[in-house]
Simulated scan of single mutants.
Amino acid sequence: MDTQKQYDLAVVGGGLAGLSLAILQAKAGKRVVLFEKNKYPFHRVCGEYISLESWDFLNYLGLNLEQLSLPIIKKLHVSSPKGTVLSAPLTLGGFGVSRYFLDQKLVEIARKLGVDIHEGTTVKQIEETSSGFEIAADALRISAKMAVGAFGKRSNLDVNWKREFINKNRTSLNQFVGVKYHIDFDFAKDTIALHNFKDGYCGISAIEGDKYCLCYLTTKKNLKLAGNSIEKLESQILSKNPYLKNIFQNATKLWDAPEVISQISFEKKQAFYQHIPLAGDASGMIAPLCGNGMSMAFHGALLLNESLLSGQSLDDYQQKWNKQFAVRLRAGRIVQRLFGNEITTDLLVRSLTYFPSLTQKIIGLTHGSIIKV
Rank of each mutant, 00 (worst) to 15 (best):
245 K>G: 14
245 K>W: 13
245 K>H: 12
245 K>R: 15
247 I>S: 05
247 I>W: 07
247 I>Q: 03
248 F>A: 10
248 F>I: 14
249 Q>S: 11
249 Q>A: 11
249 Q>N: 13
251 A>K: 06
252 T>R: 14
252 T>W: 14
253 K>P: 09
253 K>L: 13
253 K>D: 04
253 K>I: 06
254 L>H: 07
254 L>Q: 08
255 W>T: 14
255 W>P: 08
255 W>G: 10
256 D>R: 07
257 A>C: 14
257 A>W: 10
258 P>R: 01
259 E>H: 11
259 E>P: 05
259 E>R: 06
259 E>Y: 11
260 V>M: 12
260 V>A: 02
260 V>P: 11
261 I>P: 09
261 I>D: 05
261 I>C: 12
262 S>K: 05
262 S>M: 10
262 S>Q: 12
262 S>R: 06
263 Q>P: 15
263 Q>G: 14
263 Q>A: 09
264 I>W: 04
264 I>P: 11
264 I>A: 07
265 S>E: 11
266 F>Q: 05
266 F>S: 06
267 E>S: 04
267 E>F: 10
267 E>R: 08
267 E>L: 01
268 K>E: 07
268 K>G: 05
269 K>L: 05
269 K>F: 04
270 Q>G: 12
270 Q>C: 08
270 Q>D: 13
271 A>D: 14
272 F>H: 15
273 Y>P: 11
274 Q>W: 12
274 Q>Y: 12
275 H>V: 07
275 H>I: 04
275 H>L: 04
275 H>G: 07
275 H>D: 10
276 I>S: 09
277 P>Q: 08
278 L>M: 15
278 L>Q: 15
278 L>P: 13
279 A>N: 01
279 A>V: 11
279 A>Y: 00
280 G>E: 02
280 G>Y: 04
281 D>M: 09
281 D>T: 06
281 D>A: 12
282 A>T: 09
283 S>Q: 03
284 G>P: 02
284 G>D: 07
284 G>E: 06
284 G>Q: 05
285 M>D: 08
285 M>Y: 09
285 M>T: 08
285 M>L: 10
286 I>C: 06
286 I>D: 02
288 P>H: 01
288 P>I: 08
288 P>S: 04
288 P>R: 02
288 P>E: 05
289 L>H: 14
289 L>Q: 00
290 C>N: 09
290 C>Y: 04
291 G>W: 01
291 G>P: 04
291 G>K: 03
291 G>H: 01
291 G>E: 04
291 G>M: 03
292 N>T: 04
293 G>E: 00
293 G>C: 03
295 S>N: 03
